[in-house]
């Protein structure tokens, strides 16, 4: 009897969590520290780019935006995300895609509070974080979150 109860709870927990994640994954939200919204960054705090540059000294900031993707080896959706972001960087002028290996840069992961892979940060031309999405974003979600 207990086993059936455990099974029922597990089914509901898994379906609830899965449906919740499906609505959240890939959605860009403004970082609380970065400003009021994706289009109006107000607080010129230390740009996220400063920390990223410390881990990736040869990284280059895009003139319009930089898509910083955190990936790890044990991450199936990272591959799809790489394809989406890479394609956008290729087609959109001034947009750069930079992939960071989360496992090798744990200090940066903690500094930017990245919790899972893939996480995509959108930086403006000055290297400030405009927003971030956890989980694989769709092409249209990235395009909508890009600064003009």
């Amino acid at each position: 009897m207990t086993g059936i109860v455990v099974l029922a709870v597990a089914v509901m927990a898994a379906l609830g969590f899965g449906l919740y994640r499906r609505t959240r994954d890939g959605r860009f939200a403004a970082d609380a520290a970065a400003g009021d919204g994706p289009t109006t960054p107000t607080t010129p705090t230390t740009p996220a780019w400063t920390a990223i540059l410390a881990a990736h000294p040869d990284g280059e900031l895009g003139e319009r935006a930089t898509l910083v993707q955190f990936s790890s080896a044990f991450c199936a959706p990272c591959r799809a995300t790489r394809v989406v972001l890479g394609g956008i960087a290729e087609r959109e002028a001034g947009v750069v895609h930079l992939e960071v290996d989360a496992e090798k840069h744990l200090a940066l992961v903690r500094a930017l509070d990245v919790r899972r892979t893939p996480t995509t940060l959108i930086l403006d031309a000055a290297g400030r974080e405009l927003g971030r999405a956890a989980g694989a974003p769709r092409r249209d979600q990235v395009l909508a979150a890009l600064p003009a």
Binding site: A10, A14, G18, R21, E103, R115, T117
Partner: peptide, 22 residues
């Protein structure tokens, strides 16, 4: 184990992988 397997089967979502970075 069942919840993780169901998430994977239904949503293609890998719970073990998600917890890896954590």
């Amino acid at each position: 184990a069942f919840a993780a397997a169901l998430l994977n089967a239904v949503f293609g979502f890998c719970l073990g992988c998600e917890l890896y970075l954590r």
